[in-house]
């Protein structure tokens, strides 16, 4: 049995303590917004927050989450969001900059960006590189992710849709 808080709600699951958090959340708890990409903490598609810190959930055993707070993309989005408005600002910037292509890596990108901006409200390019280099985007949307982080942090103006 594993007990932790998922997106603000206490959960108990029957899982092997070595099962990665990613699979526990996707298969046992039914939240599929967090993605499987590599299984070895190389791509960042599975990024969640554990007590607020970004982790690679494909390589974090569910036992590590015991008694702690786990936040997923579903948890920072919409009404279930953490209420600080940060994730909404980031998601708004992701829309204004039209960041995603296939979108598969973007949950992880947004979870990394959320942790970055919470700790560093006005990141430099080097700060962005350091925080985001663990997240691969095979579609190659990196320049837009960078711009969106700057828009979300008030360092750049959002793109205006051509009327």
């Amino acid at each position: 049995m594993a007990n932790f808080v998922l997106n603000g709600q206490a959960v108990t699951i029957d899982a092997d303590p070595n099962m990665p958090l990613l699979w526990a959340v996707r298969e046992k708890l039914g939240l599929t917004g967090t993605k499987f990409g590599c299984g070895i903490a190389q791509c960042g598609a599975c990024t969640m927050h554990l007590d607020g810190d970004p982790i690679r959930s494909c390589s974090t055993p569910v036992s590590m989450a015991e008694g702690r707070e786990v936040t997923t993309i579903e948890g920072v989005s919409g009404e279930a969001g953490n209420g600080d408005g940060l994730a909404s600002a980031i998601q708004a910037a992701w829309i204004s900059e039209q960041v995603p292509q296939c979108g598969y890596c973007q949950s992880g990108q947004i979870m990394s960006a959320t942790a970055l901006l919470r700790d560093n409200p006005s990141p430099s390019d080097d700060d962005i590189d350091a925080a985001m280099r663990g997240n691969i985007c095979r579609c190659g949307t990196y320049t837009r992710i960078r711009r969106a982080i700057k828009v979300a942090s008030g360092q750049a103006q959002p793109r205006e849709e051509e009327a």
Binding site: L31, T32, G33, T34, K35, F36, T72, I73, E74, S77, G78, Q91, W94, I95, Q98, V99, P100, G103, Y104, Q106, S107, I110, E161, E162, A163
Partner: peptide
Amino acid sequence: GKSKARTDIPAKINGTAEFGID
């Protein structure tokens, strides 16, 4: 000829977009 915002993007930034694996 206009840069209209893509309709698939909102679901791709909040975890609700469904891919084959989901």
